[in-house]
Amino acid sequence: MKMIPPQPFTYRAGKRAVLLLHGFTGNTADVRKLGRYLHEKGYTCHAPLYTGHGGAAEELLELSPENWWRDAEEGYRLLIAEGHTQIAVAGVSLGGVFALRLGAEYPVAGVVSMCAPIQGKSAEELFERIVGYARQYKTFEGKMPDTVQAEVEALESLPREQLSVLQDMISETGRQLKDIEAPVAVMQGGLDQQLYLDSAKVIYENVPNPCKSYTVYPESGHILTLGAEQAEVFEDVYRFLQTLQWGECD
């Protein structure tokens, strides 16, 4: 089957801009519907595609997560280059981690963190995410089940050093939470793993700006932007952006 690779997207509208960041093993489809929704509300939205994402799983084990962080930074710089001086950042899972890190290291109007891991994610759990993605991707390519299984098993022999780098990056972002000056909205799926539920509480408790919120969506899992409560999530993101007044919180 011919695969159509996912692409970055930019929906241009008003001066207020939102950088949308997808998760580990995900792609821009994770945030495209949210981008369209916010675009209709008058926001310019840009979503980069992390290097190696949307393709073969084997590449994810070869690339340093620093590549993906640079992709997030370049997305921010693209919006700056287009003249946007006020930028909010919203991300899902690893995208939420990057959104928080951008909030700690760059001037942003606000941060939306959705199901971001901040503590306790093991290299083995990260590897299982890659295995699951590989199985799905190879099946979608049209490969026979025996071939899929053999290729997935072959992943076991590949180096995993970069997963430890990703672990360290997530932990370091947790230590940077105190440096985030912007308002923060923490959003979490109630059906997600306990690790993420615990992380959401840690993020909320450690970001210093009193203009912050913490919302759990009881019928949603990990990818909030594609879940059962998608409409509510989109509305809440929009309401949060509106309360920012791009520098001030009501």
Rank of each mutant, 00 (worst) to 15 (best):
V165P: 00
Q245A: 05
A134W: 04
Y43L: 08
M144H: 15
G95F: 00
V112E: 03
P48G: 08
E58L: 04
N27F: 04
M1F: 02
G190C: 10
E73K: 12
A56R: 13
Q149M: 11
A88H: 10
L177Q: 10
I203C: 08
T243Q: 13
P48S: 09
Q7T: 14
G14L: 02
V152D: 08
T147P: 00
A200E: 04
L224E: 01
A109E: 01
L38M: 06
T243V: 00
Q245M: 01
L78P: 01
E172T: 14
V184D: 04
I87A: 06
T25Q: 01
W246Y: 10
A57T: 08
K2F: 12
E40P: 00
P159V: 10
E161W: 13
Y137I: 01
P8Y: 02
Q136S: 15
V202K: 02
L94K: 07
I203W: 01
L102G: 05
R70V: 12
Y43V: 01
S171W: 14
W68E: 02
D71W: 00
H46M: 11
M3T: 11
D250L: 08
R36W: 01
D30V: 03
Q136P: 00
T225V: 12
N27A: 05
E219R: 15
R160P: 04
Q119E: 15
D168F: 05
E74S: 15
G52P: 04
P6G: 04
G42D: 11
C45S: 11
L100D: 00
Y106S: 11
E74H: 13
L244I: 06
E235D: 14
A150S: 13
L38V: 00
H53S: 10
L158W: 02
P65T: 05
A154M: 06
R160V: 03
D198F: 01
E73V: 15
Y204Q: 09
V233C: 06
C249F: 03
D71T: 06
L38D: 04
L155A: 10
E62K: 13
L224Y: 06
E40I: 00
G247H: 07
G132M: 02
L241K: 03
G142R: 11
E105Y: 08
Y133T: 08
E73H: 03
E74W: 03
C211E: 12
A104V: 04
L78M: 14
W246F: 10
L49K: 09
V237T: 13
K138S: 00
T51M: 07
Y238S: 05
